[in-house]
Amino acid sequence: MTAKKTYIQSFCTIQNNQILMNGEVVFSTEPTAFSDFSKKTYQHLEMNYPKFFKMDNLSKLAFLGAEFLLKSESNFSKENNTALVFANKSSSLDTDVKYQNSISDAENYYPSPAVFVYTLPNICLGEISIKHQLKSENSFFIFADYNPEFMEKYSNILLETLKADKVLCGWVEYYNENYKAFLYLVDKEGEIEHNQEILKKLYKQ
């Protein structure tokens, strides 16, 4: 396969109560819990999407990152073949622990379907797909650490084999109030080269 060059069209980082678009802070709050930070971000985006409040923290994190990157992309009159390739370390463990607690006491055993459904990491891909009507390729991977090499190669495969026109990649890590999201849109055109070195650099910003 002869690889054509691909580019990072835009990128978004969410960490420490801050959201950066292409390296610039676009929203931040005073130190606060993620639930509060995510709600304030939602309000900042002036969204009317009540489903947001039903999501677990991992989905909220991924959803907000996607919102910043795709809000200018969404065009419902045209099909948008943007694939989703996401990964993290902790899978849905934060919600798994919450769910496990709801079934560990026989006296107080009320498993919640609304919690159980989020005990799969790929649910956040479903949430993004629904919001942006992306009937597209999607897959969720788990690695011990941020893995720019795999992400770069896999997203390029999707573009080269014409399975997708663009790829939204994301490292979305959430466990017990520790979070970091780094999402970026890979396209066949753009200014920032899409390669491992640059992905490493942008992730660290």
Partner: peptide, 17 residues
């Protein structure tokens, strides 16, 4: 209110609990 199928399941849990 725009509730959906998961909400309905959650209401079933609430009735029980």
């Amino acid at each position: 209110l725009g509730l959906d199928s998961i909400d309905a399941l959650e209401l079933i849990v609430m009735l029980d609990k």
